[in-house]
């Protein structure tokens, strides 16, 4: 996967940004418990707030839980749903579960690759469990079956 170049804030702002991140991390730790078992819950809460897990946030979690940064980074990078890069404006995910696959999800995916509008990121999922509606798309987190897809199509640039 290509890592997007990260834009650093100007030097005089960096410490302010970092202390804001640290404060937010501390609030999450206070809510979920200052123990290693709470690590995944804390990462979920941080990602929910900020949209992704930035390097300063992971470093602050490591300090707050007194865990090696390697452990925090290792857990964050293990799970598919933790984002280590800033999120795109919109995301559209194709479900590639067996039922969706049998009903032509790969063809749908290929069409989306060609027709994707700017600002949209195409992702894939293994199964969202809406197998009876397949092929299914997840448009900004909302499940869309074939019927709803027609409404959403113009937004995502699907023709």
């Amino acid at each position: 996967m290509h890592r997007r170049a990260q834009v650093s804030p100007p030097l005089h702002l960096e410490s302010a940004v970092n202390s804001a991140v640290t404060a937010s991390v501390e609030r999450c730790i206070a809510r979920h418990g200052r123990c290693p078992e709470a690590l995944i819950e804390i990462l979920h809460a941080l990602q929910h707030q900020h949209g992704w897990l930035s390097p300063p946030a992971l470093a602050a979690v490591s300090r707050g839980l007194a865990l090696p940064l390697s452990r925090v980074q290792g857990v964050a990078s293990f799970y598919h749903l933790f984002a280590l890069q800033p999120p795109p404006r919109h995301r559209i995910a194709v479900c590639l579960g067996t039922a969706c696959f049998v009903r032509g999800a790969s063809a749908l995916q290929q069409r989306l690759v060609q027709d994707l509008a700017p600002g949209w990121q195409l992702e894939q999922l293994s199964c969202v469990g809406a197998c009876a509606q397949g092929p299914v798309l997840l448009v900004d987190g909302q499940i869309a079956g074939l019927a709803a897809m027609e409404l959403l199509a113009p937004a995502a640039g699907v023709s």
């Binding site: 123990c35 690590l39 995944i40 990462l43 293990f78």
Partner: peptide
């Protein structure tokens, strides 16, 4: 709540995940 890892359906992996690990 998991974070998107199919292998966590395996029981020992699931326990590792509940304990906050990979």
């Amino acid at each position: 709540v998991g974070a998107g890892a199919y292998v966590c359906g395996e029981e020992t992996a699931l326990l590792a995940s509940i304990a906050g690990g990979r």
